[in-house]
Amino acid sequence: MEPILNSAPFSPWEPGIFALFAYGAWVLVIVAVLLFISSWLGEKKPSPEKGRAYESGIIPTGTARLRYPVSFYLVAIFFLIFDVEGAYIFSWAVACRQLGWAGWFQILFFIFVLIMGLVYIWRKGGLEWGPQAKS
């Protein structure tokens, strides 16, 4: 009988979740140490000139948090839609042999609808970013 510490999730011998967390801790420590050393060794001579945002030698005017074109927001929305549908495709992919042809025809219909959606946003001009874009 193995003690509880050597059971699969907590055992350091298994490539499981414990090893993942240990790796995560190592990575965190390395990044923290790098930043600590740099703040320890680095020079500290702040001046107003250094603190100013670099805009190719011109003194910046106003805030830099400008509003940006709506097409970037649209990209984010499209991504959200397609990524969620990607999740369904993935869950089919891992079981595609067990689901057989019935599953294939269903995912065929699903992907057909997905492509129709892509064609629709394409026709509507959602995928135009060039100088001719109407937006």
């Binding site: 670099y54 805009e55 830099a64 400008l66 397609f82 990524d83 990607g86 993935f90």
Partner: peptide, 27 residues
């Protein structure tokens, strides 16, 4: 966060590009 116009443009472009290619990468 940089409060620089160049950095803001770069950040927005980066976000849009990465999420677009994320889809192709996944599919």
């Amino acid at each position: 966060a940089s409060n620089s116009k160049f950095a803001l443009l770069g950040g927005i472009r980066g976000a849009a590009q990465l999420i677009s290619y994320e889809l192709a990468l996944g599919l």
